[in-house]
Design a binder for these strands. Structure first.
Lengths: 205, 205
DNA sequence: CCTCGGTTTGACCGTTTGGTCAAATCAAAG
DNA sequence: CTTTGATTTGACCAAACGGTCAAACCGAGG
C-alpha cells in the first residue's frame, strides 16, 4: 500500500479505474456474488494489484458505497421551501428519474444493499437520511397546511418517489421484458409527472 | 435421492422444511450469499441430508423461485373487466400491499433475482408475465377509452403499483430507519388508496 | 548510467464452499 | 424379530476465493 502522503498520478488513475470496475461488478452481482478476480478482470489489472490499492474486497465495497451515498442523497437537498410547491416536487421527481436513467448501476448497488438489510449503512440511514427526510417532510407539510398542495402523508409521498423512479433502474429487466423492445424511459417521465400532478394539485385547481 | 415413485410422508415433510429454510436464507442473503450450511442450520438438518432431497444448491433455489413465481403473479389475474374500474384496481393494489406485508421474504427474493438481471427467470418474464400484463393493460385501456377511468399509460400504471407496494417489503429497513419506530404499514394503505383515487378518478368526479 | 521508492505480479496459503460417499441408522412390512 | 429400502451423517474432496509475499519491474531524480 502507498504511504499516506500525497497520492501520485498513477495512484489516482488506478484507484478510479478500480472503483469504476468495482461498481460494475458489485452492482450486478452483489457483495458476496462479486469476486476480486472479476473486478480485476474488468479493471484490466491483476488481483494482487487491486489489493495493493485497497486492503480488502470489503474496503473496495465500502469505498464504492460511501462515494455513492453522498451523491445519492443529493437530489433531495435541492427541494427548498421557496418556489412553487408542485414544481419543486416535480423537479425533484425528474431529477431522480434522470439519475435512474443515467446511473442505473448506482441505483442497483443501493437497492442490493438495502434489500439485504443494509448491514453496512444502517447507521447512515437512521441518522443522516432520517434527518434529511424529516426536514423535507416538514417543508412539504408546511405547503399542505398552507393549502398550496393537496393533503398527503409527506413521508410516504417521498417513499413513493423513491420507489417509482428507482424501479426503472432496479427492475429494468422486468420492465423491458414486459414492454418488449420499447424503451422504458420513453413514457416514464410523462407518466410520473401526470401522477404527481393529479396527486398533489390543490383542491381548487 | 428418493426414487421418482410416490413421495413418502417423511419426504414431503422434509422437502417443505428445506424449502422454507431456503426461502429464509436466499431472501436475506441472495443466491451467492447463501450457503447450504446456513440453510441446513435453519432447517435443522445436516448438509448432506439437504443434498439427499435436492441435487444441488441451485436446485433448491430454482424450487423456491418457481414455487414463488406462481403465487406472485396471481393477484394480477384477479383484475377482471367486470365491476367498477377504480374498485378493481384499488383491490388489486390492496392485495399487493398485503402480500408485501405478509410475504416479505418472497418479495425480497423476487427483488434480488430481478435486480441481478433475472438470469433464471428471464424467459418467464418475457412470455408468461408479458402476456398477462398485455392482457390486463388492454382491460385498463378499455376502461379509459370508455371514459370510466382518467387516462394514464396502462403499463406504467401497473409498474407503479408493483414498485409502490413492493417497496414496503424490499426497502423495509430504509423505510423503518426514516420513520423511526413507527410501523411502515400503518399509513401505507391510506396513502396508496389516496394516490390511485386521485390518479384514476375520471374527470367528471 | 545508477538509485530508489513506487508499482506489478506469479506463486502460494488457509479457509470456505458445494458436493460425494460409504457406512450407520431408522421405520415399516412380513 | 428380521428384512429391506428409505433416511441420515461424519469424513472427505476439489474448486473457488480472499489475501500474502518475495521478487521483479519501472520511472523519475540525481
Amino acid at each position: 500500500m502507498p504511504k499516506d502522503k500525497a497520492p501520485t498520478r498513477i495512484q489516482r488513475k488506478n484507484r478510479l479505474t478500480i472503483l469504476e470496475a468495482a461498481l460494475d461488478v458489485f452492482s450486478s452481482q452483489g457483495f458476496r456474488g462479486a469476486t476480486v478476480d472479476q473486478i480485476a478482470a474488468v479493471a484490466g489489472l491483476s488481483k494482487p494489484n487491486l489489493l495493493y490499492y485497497f486492503p480488502s474486497k470489503e474496503a473496495m465495497y465500502d469505498a464504492v458505497l460511501s462515494q455513492l451515498l453522498y451523491t445519492w442523497l443529493d437530489p433531495l437537498r435541492t427541494l427548498t421551501p421557496e418556489g412553487d410547491p408542485l414544481e419543486e416536487i416535480l423537479s425533484y421527481v425528474r431529477l431522480k428519474l434522470e439519475m435512474s436513467r443515467n446511473y442505473p448501476r448506482e441505483s442497483r448497488l443501493f437497492a442490493n444493499e438495502i434489500v439485504q438489510g443494509a448491514p453496512r449503512i444502517h447507521q447512515v440511514l437512521a441518522t443522516d437520511l432520517k434527518q434529511l427526510v424529516d426536514e423535507k417532510a416538514a417543508v412539504i407539510q408546511g405547503w399542505i397546511d398552507a393549502g398550496r398542495l393537496a393533503p398527503v402523508h409527506p413521508y410516504h409521498l417521498i417513499f413513493s418517489i423513491w420507489s417509482l423512479t428507482q424501479h426503472y433502474a432496479d427492475f429494468d429487466v422486468q420492465v423491458r421484458a414486459v414492454l418488449g423492445q420499447e424503451d422504458p424511459f420513453a413514457a416514464a417521465p410523462d407518466f410520473v409527472e401526470t401522477l404527481y400532478r393529479r396527486l398533489l394539485s390543490p383542491a381548487g385547481a
